[in-house]
Design a protein around this nucleic acid. Structure first.
Length: 365
DNA sequence: CGCTCCCGCCAATTC
DNA sequence: GAATTGGCGGGAGCG
């Protein structure tokens, strides 16, 4: 798909980055048509993305065709909100959690005894109005996204596969069709969440099953994590000896699939957006100290990779890691420059790769 | 094949 | 009644 993306959409640099380029710290509105044009995608696609972003607080619908960009810095709050919801309004969360935990280690999902623990059904509805009305909303991408996230932040299992999630979100609806549909949606959601670094795709240690891990909350210190946490993402090659001959696009495809697919069809570079945003935030909050934490974001690995003791390597040319490493936590001019530098670098790599010429850069050093 | 997820029909909603 | 939104699932592409 990555390649396909390339072929079809070579808009690469158009992106949300452009949209928020003029934005300065505050609230900027975005027009759908505008976005669609800039991104070179059909409108329908924008709706998907927008809905997901909105469910995480990055955007807010202001009026027809108009959205307000809140920024990634709004995510922490939204997340907190979800967390609370997950704990109160949800009596069954615990059930679902244990359920997930079970399933996590067992491929076979044999619901224990519960006969209806749909994570989705619980709240909402039963407020009087006919359910048929709310029905549509209950199935919205936005809600699904939130529930999906709740699954992560309230579950003890840190590795969740889409099937598992779908099952949990569906409750007992033993309908293969519904399942399929749900999973399709989850793929969509997972893609954009991945592009925002809120989750990460990994293979389950035992079963090679593709699963997702929550990255949104910082330091979740989980003993169990240590094991898996080192696992690298999917396509990327982990070996210290990264054979430079790796398919040119390898790195690209990896990143284009997760960051670009971005939000599906959009080729949206959220990371870049984040850079801009961070920088903007920095400037504007002149010296507001670290309250800028980026809580949910900063993956535990952000600061440097283990001062030493840690596993060695980390392929030098993993620009993605670089991105993480340099993700602004608090930045100064120097860092700002760095960002710019990497942005450019990234851009050229992208182009090169695009032309299939990829001159991978010199190994570390 | 099975996993992904693109694409766009068309219904629900909103203007 | 037209325009916006957006659920939904067929099926293409790829490993």
């Amino acid at each position: 798909m990555a390649s396909k993306n390339h072929l079809i959409y070579s808009r690469k640099d158009k992106s949300l980055g452009v949209l928020c380029s003029n934005r300065q710290g505050g609230v900027e509105s975005i027009g759908l048509d505008n976005a669609a044009n800039q991104l070179g995608v059909e409108r329908r696609r924008i709706y998907d993305i927008v809905n997901i972003l909105e469910s995480v607080g990055v955007l807010t619908r202001r009026a027809k065709n108009q959205y307000t960009w809140k920024g990634f810095t709004a995510i922490p709050h939204a997340l907190q909100q979800l967390r609370e919801q997950a704990f109160n309004e949800t009596p069954k969360v615990s059930q679902v959690c244990s359920f997930l935990t079970h399933v996590a280690n067992d491929n076979d999902c044999r619901g224990p005894s519960s006969s209806n623990n749909s994570y989705t059904d619980m709240h909402a509805k039963s407020s009087g109005s006919s359910k048929s009305e709310n029905n549509r909303k209950e199935k919205s991408l936005g809600l699904l996204t939130q529930n999906f996230i709740k699954l992560f932040i309230s579950s003890t299992a840190d590795l969740i596969s889409l099937d598992t999630a779908a099952t949990a979100l569906l409750g007992d609806i033993r309908d293969p069709t519904a399942m399929r549909t749900k999973v399709r949606r989850l793929y969509d959601i997972a893609n954009v969440l991945t592009s925002m670094d809120l989750i990460e795709k990994v293979r389950h240690p035992e079963t090679g099953k593709p699963s997702f891990r929550w990255l949104g909350s910082n330091t979740k210190s989980k003993t169990l994590d240590t094991n898996v946490s080192k696992r690298r993402t999917f396509g990327t090659n982990i070996t210290n000896r990264d054979d430079s001959k790796r398919k040119q696009i390898d790195t690209m495809s990896d990143w284009s699939s997760k960051d670009v697919t971005a939000a599906m069809h959009g080729n949206i570079d959220f990371k870049k957006v984040k850079y801009n945003e961070n920088i903007a935030t920095q400037e504007q909050s002149s010296r507001n100290s670290k309250e800028f934490v980026f809580g949910p974001f900063t993956p535990a690995t952000v600061p440097k990779v283990g001062t030493s003791g840690n596993k060695k390597l980390k392929r030098a040319q993993d620009w993605e890691n670089l991105a993480d490493t340099y993700r602004p936590q608090y930045c100064n001019k120097a860092l700002t420059d760095l960002f710019g530098h990497y942005e450019d670098a990234y851009k050229s790599w992208y182009v090169e790769a695009d032309e299939k010429k990829v001159a991978h850069r010199s190994p570390e050093s």
